[in-house]
Structures are given as C-alpha cells and as structure tokens.
Nucleic acid binder design. Structure first.
Length: 927
RNA sequence: ACGACUGUAGCUCAGUUGGUUAGAGCGCCACCUUGACAUGGUGGAGGUCGGUGGUUCGAAUCCACUCAGUCGUACCA
C-alpha cells in the first residue's frame, strides 16, 4: 500500500465492479423490511451541482445503510424532461444555425429534442457514478418514457372525469418571451425602481377630472372603470358617474370597492381586469368587460387606437405618457419602488394575460394531503417544515397545468370542428366513448402539461402504475423523500395530493428537508455570480487557470467576467486540490445538520481528505502487523486480551449504537463526527499506540499478541463497515485486505457493500475497562504536559514516582506498566509510600494520586511554580463556584440528591487537588 | 405586514428531556523529521453562548421583549 491514500487509483475500479455485478439492485430482504427512496429527478438539461451532490450523498448513505441492514432496498433513479428548460436548450441550438422551431415543425422539433436527450441527457448520471452513488440504474426512468406518459394520461383522464380538471379562460402569468403560461411558482417578483404616473381622467360630464396613479400607463387602453373607496367623502358624489378614457375616448364608470386604499395616491384606481390580478377580481365583482389589449408578445393588439397598435408594451408606455403630457393630462411623475414579476426561466417581465388554460381544482385534493401530515402518516424532518407546508396548502390556488410549448406530455383532449372538447386516453377511445363517426375530425389540444404534473406522479409512476406491479407492492410508499425546502410547494405538496388520490397511499413516510449549499462566504451558488463549484472538480482537482476559464465562459452576463475572475483568483490561489470522492462525501455528511444554510468550506474538505488518509494509514499499520501472522482466527487456540483490547472493543459498541441512532434521526453530521472521533482520537491515537508495546514486546506471549492482532483487525473491519455508507470507496479497498484477516471469506463475500452493518453487542461494553484506560490516559497526559511545559525533550526517558495511591491506582499501575513506559517514554516507575521521601519534583495529579517527575537537572523552578500557580488559580475559581452552589440552601434542599452529591464530590476532588498543589507549591518555593 | 429560521472561540459548526470545568474541525502559538501517517505527532492559547428582563435552587438550553441577519408569503394601483 502507498504511504498516501490515492482516491483516483481505486474509485473507478470499484464503481465498475459494483455496477457490473448488480449490487445496486434490490436483493431479497433479510429483515422482512423494504426500504426505498425515489430520487428527486434532476432535470435532463442539468449538470451536477453541489446541491445534487449533497442531497445524493445523503440518499446514498441511507441506501447503503439499509442495504447493509438487510432490508430489500431500492434507490430509484431517473430524471424529468424539464419542458421549458429543455425546449430552450434545443431552440438555442437551432438558433445558432439560424433556425426556429417553426421552421422544423412540431414533430421534427420533438425528434430533435429526443436526439439531444440521447446524446447529452446522460451527463448527470455519469457524474452521479463518479460520486459513488448506488441507485438501481437498471430501473432508471424518465418522465417522458412510455410508461410514465401512460400514467400521466391516466391521471389526467380520471381527474377530468371527476371534474377535478377543467378548462377555462382565466388570467394567467404569461411569459411573453417563451409564449406560454407559467404557474405562480415559476414567477419571482423582485423590487425594482419604477415610476408612479399620476394621470387625469376627465369626467364625462365635463365637471372636472379625477387623478389616477399607475405604474403601468400602457394598460390604460384596457381600463374598464375607475374605483374609489365607498367611504371616501371626496368621491361620494362621483360614484356612478363616468369618466372618459384619455387617448381612447371610451366612457367608463366610477365604481366603489373597498379594496381601494383611501390614503394611497389620490384614492382613485384605474381598473384593467384583463391585465392585473387584483383588477381581474374586481372586474368579476362588478361585471366589467375583460378587454385584452395585448398580443402574445406583449405588444399592443388591435383593440387599441391604431397609433399604438403593434407597439411593444414598454414602447406604448412611453408613447402614451408623451401623448397624455401633450394633452396636459399628466399631473406628475413620482419615482416608485415596485415589485416586478419575472419568469424564472426567461427572466422576462410576466404579463397577466387572459387565455384558455387547463386547471387542476385542488381544493378536494388538498384536504387529505393536509390530513396526512396532520395525523402523522407523513412526517417532516426537521418537523417545523410542516408549517411551511400547511401555510401553502391552506392557501392553494387552482393549478394551471397547461403550457404553450411543444416538449412535454401533450394534453389528451381533442376538439371537433365545433370546438367541443373530448378527453380520453387516446383518440380512438374518445371516438368510441362519444360515438363519433370517423368523418368527424378531431384535433388534439396543442398544449402540453406542466412538467411538475408528471413529477407529481413520480413515486408510483416509476414503479409501473397504473399496472399493479410487484415493485409497487414492495416499494410504495417510499420510505423517505430527501429534498430541499425550496421545492416543498413545487413538488412535495403536489406529490402528496396526487399520490393519495391515485394510490390511496402517501408517497413517502418521511420528508427529510436539508439545507441549501452556499459558498464559503454564505452566498448562494449561481452561474451568474460565478461562484459555483463543480463537485467533480473537488474530486479530481482543478488548476486555477482552468477554474477561471470554467467560471467565465458561456456567461449570461459577460460584463461580470473580470470581477468573477478576480474573486476566483483571490479565493483559490492554487486552484483546487484533488480531495477524492470519499472526502467530499464525508464533508457533505458532516455538514448535514438541521440548519437551512450550508456554507461549503474547502478547508473542511481538506480536513476530511486528511481523515481518509489517516484511515488509510491506520489500515496500513494493521496490515503490516497482521499479514502473515496469527490473527486469532482459530477459536480453539487461546488468546489473551489486553486492557486496550477490551477497551477499544467496548468503545466500538458505543459508537456503533450512536451511529444507528444518528442515522435514524437523519443527523449525518453527528454520525460523521462520531466516526471521525472514534477513528482518529480513539482507534488511531490511543489504541494503535497501545498495540505497539504488545506487538513489539519480546516478553509478550503469543496469546497476547494474537489477542491484540485479532482486536486490531476486527475493530478495523467493523469500523470500515460503519464508515462504508458515507465513504464507500476507501472502505471497500481497505476491507478487501482486512476482511480475510478478520475471518471473512472474500471469495464468497465479495464486497463490503452487502456485509451486515455492525450491531451493538452490549455484553462487550466494559465500563471498568473504560475507567482503567481513562486512568492510563490521565497518567500519560499528565506526564506529557509536564514535559511540554518544562521543555523536556520528548525523546528523553524520564523516571517517575507515584505517590498517594489508592487500591485502584495500585492495581492499575501494576497492570499497565508497559503501556505507561512506552507511551509516556519512561525510564522507570517507582512507588513511594509518602510524599516525604519524594525529591523535589514536578507533579501531575490523577485523582488523589500524584505522578512525580524529579526535577534534578531537568526542571526549572520558576517554570514549575508558574505552572502550579496556573492550576491553583483555576482550582480556586472552580472551588468558589462549587462553594457558592453548595452553600446555597435552595440548591441543597431542592436539587435532586444525585446532582447535589455530584457537586459535593466535585468539591471534594477540587479541595484535595488544591491542597496537593498548594503543598507542592510551598515545597518547590523552598528549593 | 405576517410567518419561519439563524445569532455559541478568529472562521465553519455541535451542544439530546434545564444540572459539563460550554465541545469539535480549521486557523493560531510552541516543540517534535519517533519505524502507519508531516495529508503526521505532542502540548497550549482562545468564548461574560447577540442584548435586556423573567421563571427556577440552577438557563447556552424554558418564557417575554429587543437588536442583527437570512428566507418565505402577502402586498397600495
């Protein structure tokens, strides 16, 4: 084995082996349990980002853990077709050749999309393989596959037949660039600077004018009323009169509606029902006409005066203002901050637009979905997220599911020449059901469904629904959904509604909601900010120039390139080192606590790379000391276990217990931490060191050496299995070498992946061994501290004296001479009956016992005095605190007895230590 | 405006039902090329747990208020 762990030399090898041998497929349950996770389908257009890597590490860890527990485990992979995003990608490619999708026509265009999907759609799945992910690739699904499309049609038809899907003309969020409706969730409003234009609307009877304020003067052409508050004295007499709409000449009524704020602007609001959501509602209340004045491009249509027809909405705005000004109808212009809605894909300003769309009536679906979370059938982890869920579910709007694009599931509705609509699974079914003669022409609806409509069916459509498959039986409901909070509305809520409706089951029993990965400065990672990290670059490393190149090419806003380059060069002066997959995964696990934001710090990654190296070298040490030696496999041969052996075995049980608990609670950070601590601070720092005196001893018996070798190997073998769900590669590589020495037949048991996950054996928890070893550590650390603070070379063997020993101390000293001598580098250990015989010494206390290092020729009086003084000060403070507590009548009478006793014990210990140190101080002082 | 979350060492974060001397990693300081590992070892410094008040014998932990930050929802045209 190499001196350093080299991830690149083992990762691909093992991944291929695992996949080729079919280890990712569900294997028959050994526990009777089934465990399944459905991957939140990444977008086919996407490439892997840190969020995926983080989320998938969690899912893979859970999957590997349950697989090792013996559950029949399925991690279902796949991707969604991302209607708008994918269509945009392919359109952009066509545009580069000077073509539009209309040049190709619908069918040829869709063929092109499929073609693109075949060639580039698999990028993310290859990247997932690099991360060591173990989903059952043989079951990979895509939302546009036949099976899933079939499920989509089935759901659509059934919902339609139950009046839960309807078609209607409504005001929707219209994206004038993409020419499609989008749902409210796909619109993000941001504060932008604009103006508030105050316009005069003359009263039709010539008796004056009203002033209305607007942020969107161009919608004036569609105005159908001016509204005032019913209690507003200023306008009482005008209610019911009309104003004449400037530039248009139409008379529109002045109406009263308490939606109007008296105190804002002039207290008069222009009402444009076809271009504003609030006005739309008011328009319905007052039976106002809905006049659409724009085209699908958000240019003015022919409902406006000829002069403005064909103008873009913003151009028309300027023209209207200019013309109003010319007519002296513009009272004033104020700067005004307003929320501007923009489409999350196109970034275009969204236009409320009156169109025919398909909707899901959600009210009836929502109720059981709310109940499922209320009654605990679905549990959110951490549980506060259910509030977010309820808040959304209690304020649901009907879901607009039609999209005016080509790529997606075409709506299974057909129209006859009279425009009557028929919904069915196929055209033939429609004909049959409605007895339509073949002479009746039927044209299918042009629209496709929102991608989330198919994603909402993901947990059951991927398992073969509407067929009754064995997979559905076994793996549905899935065990847990692992997802980010940003997607609770988009996906989680809709999945719960649809799945309950169609399977009568919840889609998942738990929802584990994790945080969002941010950069080291807490900024959200985004391509436009130029602060994204590619997980693969953390695995393989990347030099600075390539990183700069990567971050500054293909940008939406090239003007930011210089800034990004500068920041990148500052933050990554030497590029990024290759940390390997295991280190990256361990980092993600350690960051998975309960918070909402996860700041990704490269230093953490480096630390866990070092951890992998530590594990690697511990393995080297174990192999060097056990290969070709007796590792105690023959149970009939005698072995002797040292204190260190029983201690580390005991500790292993406790850690194992903790890991199970942490995985149950999705506390991957705590699990990672416990594993790190055990591996480094117990197994490596202490146990491996304690094994040396035995293995290198000339006097130790074969039974003792076998006992230690056996423990070395078995604890390591267990540790590798404990670590495997988080760090699959290094553990597999090490396990192959270690397992045979622990008695595992790697001819039949070919991989760590399918080994049983370690269970706690409580019989092996040995508190007395832990106490004794703690004593050994205390003695060693006390001596090391004196060495260090007295500047005594670590290499210099020291004589020590032990005094004030109780029975335990005496027994423990007798048992552990070898450990102490070796680890503390002692020349000799002598016991003295009383202090009196002791020469001038530096002292360390272990309980009552004194560990003395004679000072002759070694120790500086002043240094020792100041060292003692420091400890005395500390103890004084501690004692004052304890006295305060114990002298408090309330504490002694009201606190539980055990707590009081504990404090009394502490006081006793502190007092005795203090006395010892003070005596010592006095003694040294007199030297 | 409402709601949620966060505030603990220079940095990133743990801290279970109130009872620890408040922990870890990184960084920092000193020493050490000892035979698994310098991607290492040993020792050390560093925190009035955002603030105020309360409940309690006892608060980082519970309650109220407050400050700062993040996010979500709703917004006045």
């Amino acid at each position: 084995m190499d001196k350093h762990f080299d991830p690149q030399s083992i990762e691909n090898k093992w991944y291929q082996t695992w996949e080729n041998r079919g280890y990712f497929k569900p294997a028959p349950s050994q526990t009777g349990n089934h465990y399944s996770i459905m991957i939140p389908p990444p977008n086919v257009t996407g490439s892997l980002h840190m969020g995926h890597a983080f989320q998938d590490t969690i899912m893979d860890t859970l999957t590997r853990y349950h697989r090792m527990l013996g559950d029949e485990t399925l991690w279902q992979p796949g991707s969604d077709h991302a209607g708008i995003a994918t269509q945009m990608v392919v359109e952009r490619q066509l545009a580069a050749k000077g073509l539009s999708k209309h040049d190709l026509g619908r069918e040829a265009f869709i063929d092109k999309v499929w073609e693109w999907k075949q060639t580039s759609g698999g990028q993310i799945t290859q990247q997932l393989r690099r991360l060591g992910m173990s989903p059952d690739w043989s079951r990979e699904r895509f939302t546009m596959d036949d099976g899933l499309s079939n499920a989509v049609r089935e759901v659509f038809v059934q919902l339609y037949e139950q009046d839960l899907i309807y078609r209607g003309k409504r005001l929707v969020n219209w994206d004038p660039v993409l020419h499609t409706a989008v749902s409210d969730l796909e619109v993000a409003s941001e504060e932008e600077m604009g103006s508030l234009w105050h316009m005069r609307y003359p009263l039709s009877d010539g008796s004056g004018h009203l002033v209305v304020a607007t942020t969107r003067p161009e919608t004036l052409f569609g105005d159908q009323a001016v509204a005032v508050h019913p209690d507003d004295e200023r306008y009482q007499s005008l209610i019911g009169k009309t104003v004449t709409l400037p530039l248009v000449g139409r008379e529109i009524p002045i109406i009263a509606d308490d939606y109007v704020e008296k105190d804002f602007g002039s207290g008069c609001v222009k009402i444009t029902p076809a271009h504003d959501f609030n006005d739309y509602e008011m328009g319905k209340r007052h039976n106002l006409p809905m006049l659409n004045v724009m085209t699908i491009d958000a240019a003015m249509n022919d409902e406006v005066p000829e002069k403005y027809q064909g103008m873009d909405r913003f151009e028309a705005r300027q023209a209207a203002i200019k013309d109003l000004e010319a007519l002296d109808l513009l009272e004033k212009i104020e700067p005004h901050k307003l929320m501007v809605p923009r489409g999350d894909r196109s970034h275009a300003v969204i236009e409320p637009f009156l169109t025919d769309q398909w909707y899901v009536a959600v009210e009836e679906l929502a109720k059981p979905a709310i109940d499922a979370v209320k009654n605990g059938d679905i549990e959110f982890v951490p549980k506060n997220w259910k509030n977010t869920y309820f808040e959304w579910m209690n304020n649901l709007q009907d879901w607009c599911i039609s999209r005016q694009i080509w790529w997606g599931h075409r709506i299974p509705a057909w129209y006859d020449d009279e425009g009557r609509v028929y919904v069915g699974r196929t055209k033939a079914e429609v004909r049959a059901n409605h007895q339509l003669a073949s002479s009746v022409t039927l044209n299918q609806d042009e629209d496709v469904l929102d991608t989330w409509f198919s994603s909402a069916l993901w947990t059951f459509s991927t398992l073969g629904w509407p067929e009754k498959t064995p997979e559905l039986e076994k793996f549905h409901p899935s065990s847990v959904l692992v997802t980010g909070f940003d997607i609770i509305f988009f996906w989680v809520a809709r999945m719960i509604m649809m799945t309950l409706k169609f399977t009568g089951e919840v889609p998942f029993k738990q929802v584990y909601v994790h945080g969002l990965v941010r950069d080291a400065e807490g900024q959200k990672m985004s391509k436009s900010k130029g602060n994204v990290l590619d997980p693969i670059d953390l695995i393989d490393g990347i030099d600075l120039e390539s990183l700069v190149q990567k971050r500054t090419t293909g940008m939406m806003q090239p003007e930011k390139a210089a800034k990004i380059e500068k920041a990148t060069r500052r933050q990554f002066t030497d590029g990024i080192e290759a940390y390997g997959t295991d280190a990256l995964r361990f980092t993600f696990a350690s960051l998975a606590s309960t918070g909402r934001d996860i700041q990704f710090d490269l230093n953490r990654c480096e630390g866990y790379r070092n951890f992998c190296n530590k594990l690697w070298n511990a393995t080297r040490y174990v192999l060097m000391n056990t290969e070709g030696e007796d590792t105690g496999l023959d149970e009939t041969q005698p072995i002797t276990l040292s204190l260190a052996d029983t201690w580390i075995t005991s500790r292993l049980q406790t850690v194992t217990q903790q890991i199970h608990k942490h995985f149950e609670h999705y506390r991957f950070d705590l699990a990672a931490n416990a594993l790190y601590e055990f591996t480094w601070n117990e197994y490596c720092d202490w146990y491996l060191e304690l094994s040396k005196p035995i293995l290198q001893s000339e006097t130790a018996t074969d039974a003792e050496k076998s006992g230690t070798r056996r423990t070395l190997v078995r604890v390591l073998e267990s540790l590798l299995r404990l670590l495997h769900p988080i760090t699959p590669f290094i553990t597999e590589e090490a396990w192959q070498a270690v397992a045979p020495l622990a008695g595992v037949d790697t001819q039949s048991q070919r991989t760590i992946m399918t080994q049983p996950y370690p269970l706690t054996n409580e019989a092996l928890i040995d508190e007395s061994a832990e106490a004794e070893l703690e004593w050994v550590k205390q003695v060693i650390m006390g001596i090391r501290r004196i060495r260090s603070e007295m500047n005594i070379a670590p290499s210099k063997p020291l004589p020590v004296l032990m005094a004030q020993m109780n029975q335990n101390d005496q027994a423990w000293l007798k048992n552990n001479q070898v450990f102490l001598k070796k680890l503390a580098r002692l020349e000799s250990i002598d016991v003295i009956a009383t202090d009196a015989e002791a020469p001038d010494s530096a002292v360390a206390l272990v309980g009552e016992m004194k560990v003395l290092i004679p000072m002759a020729g070694l120790i500086d009086k002043e240094a020792e005095l100041s060292r003692l003084d420091k400890d005395i000060q500390k103890l004084n403070k501690e004692l004052a605190r304890l006295n305060g507590k114990l002298n408090n009548e309330g504490f002694v009478s009201k606190a539980p007895e055990a707590v009081v006793k504990k404090e009394q014990q502490k006081r006793h210990d502190a007092e005795s230590a203090l006395k010892n140190l003070k005596d010592q101080y006095a003694k040294i002082e007199q030297m």
